Structure formats: structure tokens, C-alpha cells
Amino acid sequence: MPETPLDGPHLAPRSGRPATSLVVLLHGYGADGRDLIDLGQIWSQLLPDAAFVSPHAPEPLAIAPIGRQWFGYVERNDAERWTGVQSAHRTLDAFLDTELTRLGLPGNRLALVGFSQGAMMALHTGLRRREAPAGLVGFSGIHVLPTERGLDAFDTEITGRPPVLLVHGDRDETIAPSYLPRAVESLSARGIRLRSHLSPGLGHGIDPVGLRLAGDFLAEVLRG
């Protein structure tokens, strides 16, 4: 069965000029592209020549009549997440190519920002692009790893090492805060430049400090 292309809300550059970069916003489990597109309105003040797009994940939510998922959950364990990010990777990767072509931009003018399950996809696909993105941002996410037996193959799949910013709340009850240091360790071990921030009192969400850190990070990596 052919894959259904992704689509979702877009924001043209605030400046009115042709886009010089593209920021793709990847929503979490059970949401859709409308959940994050307003981040583009906020960050466009720092990135007036950036286009923003927030695609709806490819699958209808399995447990409710509304919402989308990048992949489904049953056990919510590492093996299931690994299977999930692998299964959704090709569809997201193709979407990124389509959007860059539409805007006439090279792959290094791309930044990926993901929340929760979207952060898992941003890290997974962002490290496997044909041309490394300018940067990756993950809010309340996980750097999904295969089983120990699959780590050698995992490392050979990594095609680029863009800088990464990770932000997590220390009161997150959906994805435990312990996944932040685990991601820092696994990404750093693979030579990836990394910044991380643990937000005091924050649950599973994005706070003003995280918005500011991510906006500054995106402005830095997309400058020029």
C-alpha cells in the first residue's frame, strides 16, 4: 500500500521574503499539527526569514476517534518505541525532502523541533538525513535506542551530527525526567554536540524558559 504524504499547517516567513530556512514542528502522541504551529509565530520574531510547518502524524490515533500518532503504543517500552521510530522514519524523511524542494532550500537549512513522541522522531530522523540538518530540538522526549545487540548497526545508520538541544520537566509523569540524562549520555557518546535543560516544576509540557532556550538555539544554528 503506498504511503500517504504528510501535510499540516504552514507559516510563510514573517519578513515576506523568500524563506532562507525551514523549521519543522513535530507534535506528540494524540495531538496533530495544529498543536505546535503557534510556536512558529513566537519564534518568527527571531527568525523572520524562516518558514514553519507542523505536519500531522501519519496514523490516526489508535485509542481515540481524534488525534494522530507517529506510531502506536501497547507496552510503552524501548523495543516498541524502536520499532515505532523505524516504521515512521521513511514517511517523515520523504516529507522533509518535499518541503525543502518546495522552498528551494538545501538540507542544511532545516531544523527539527519535536515534543514527546515528536521529539523521538526529530532525533531519530534528524540523525539519519542525507544532509545533516542545522539543528535538532527535543522537548520532553526520548533518544530511542535499539536493544544492545542492535547498537552497532544503529551507529552505522547515523549520517550526520547536528547540534542538539534537549529540554525536559523535572515533574514529567508521562516521560520520566531520567530520560534526559540518558539521552545526553547516548548522544554525547556518539560525538553529538549537545545542550540540555531540566525545567524545575514542569510536567509534560513546554514552559517559557524552554521556549526562550529553543528560540535562541534555532536563531544561532540557522543564522547566515
Results as ranks from 00 to 15, higher is better:
104 G>V: 07
142 I>L: 13
191 G>Q: 01
90 R>D: 14
158 I>V: 10
97 D>F: 02
167 V>F: 10
29 Y>R: 14
155 D>S: 03
154 F>K: 04
76 R>C: 01
72 G>V: 02
77 N>R: 07
121 M>F: 09
149 R>E: 15
37 I>R: 06
21 S>Y: 11
33 G>M: 06
12 A>Q: 14
215 G>H: 11
182 R>M: 11
107 G>V: 08
168 H>Y: 08
10 H>E: 15
62 A>W: 05
150 G>N: 01
189 A>Q: 13
197 H>V: 07
131 E>Y: 05
39 L>R: 11
147 T>C: 08
160 G>F: 03
221 V>A: 11
74 V>Y: 02
128 R>P: 05
188 S>Q: 14
35 D>N: 11
46 L>T: 09
87 S>Q: 14
170 D>H: 07
55 P>V: 00
208 P>H: 07
90 R>Y: 00
88 A>T: 00
162 P>D: 04
97 D>L: 07
162 P>W: 09
47 L>T: 09
172 D>Q: 06
200 P>I: 06
118 G>A: 04
109 R>K: 14
204 H>W: 13
90 R>H: 12
153 A>M: 12
164 V>Y: 06
145 L>P: 00
159 T>H: 05
52 F>Q: 03
93 D>Q: 14
222 L>I: 09
6 L>N: 12
171 R>Q: 15
128 R>V: 01
218 L>H: 13
112 L>G: 04
183 A>S: 15
21 S>P: 10
57 A>F: 10
178 S>A: 15
208 P>L: 12
156 T>E: 14
140 S>D: 04
170 D>E: 03
161 R>G: 02
8 G>M: 10
67 G>C: 03
158 I>F: 01
205 G>Y: 13
56 H>V: 00
109 R>T: 13
16 G>H: 12
100 L>S: 06
147 T>R: 14
173 E>L: 13
73 Y>S: 01
200 P>H: 04
21 S>K: 10
208 P>A: 13
40 G>C: 02
119 A>D: 04
219 A>W: 09
69 Q>V: 06
219 A>E: 15
50 A>W: 05
154 F>R: 01
97 D>A: 15
19 A>N: 14
142 I>P: 03
102 R>M: 01
32 D>S: 14
8 G>A: 10
170 D>C: 11
110 L>D: 04
216 D>I: 03
25 L>H: 09
170 D>S: 05
158 I>D: 00
155 D>I: 00
103 L>G: 10
4 T>V: 12
76 R>A: 12
121 M>I: 05
40 G>K: 06
87 S>T: 13
133 P>G: 03
93 D>H: 13
54 S>R: 05
216 D>S: 11
173 E>D: 15
175 I>H: 01
156 T>K: 11
6 L>A: 11
163 P>R: 10
44 S>Y: 09
163 P>Y: 09
128 R>Q: 05
158 I>P: 02
156 T>V: 12
53 V>M: 08
10 H>M: 10
144 V>A: 03
53 V>P: 05
25 L>C: 09
143 H>G: 02
18 P>K: 09
94 A>H: 05
